[in-house]
Amino acid sequence: MAFALTPERELELADILGRYPNKMAATIPVLHLCQDQNGWVSPEVVTFVAATCDVPVAHVQGVVTFYTLFNQKPVGKHQVWVCRTLSCALRGADDVLHHCEKRLGIHVGETTKDGQVTLRTAECLAACGQAPMMQVDKDYHENLTLEQVDAILDRLKRS
């Protein structure tokens, strides 16, 4: 089925398209808008974005495969990104990551069986002074202890 935006997002789309001298420049923001609604960038989303931004489907596909944040397959309801780069690693990011794997019963890159949580690693998220940290959906959780990680993961399983 063809992809369509909700009416509120249609309004946001019009706003986005008004910011640039051409439509192509809206490709990345429009992909984010669609992924926010759809959870991932499906082939239907790619077709929609190509038509909206007046670019070839292959161009959109090239953009989607370049950037880490575009999901090329369905993911869990919640995304947990554990930062693993040096400043976080120096403050225990490896322990946070292993703890998440054990607690969720999955490896990095996998989604829990109930479809609630996808666990991933991230490269530096610009929170080096508040390490270790992880990003859950759109929120940063910083200066983490393993107890706090437990509380966050428990909440995600229920919501």
Partner: peptide, 28 residues
Amino acid sequence: VYVQTGGGAYICGEETALLNSLEGRRGE
């Protein structure tokens, strides 16, 4: 003044990659 968003690529901090990304391209 407008805010433009990236897509999670460190290389887009390089100014010409950033310009490509701003134009809706791969950040090369």
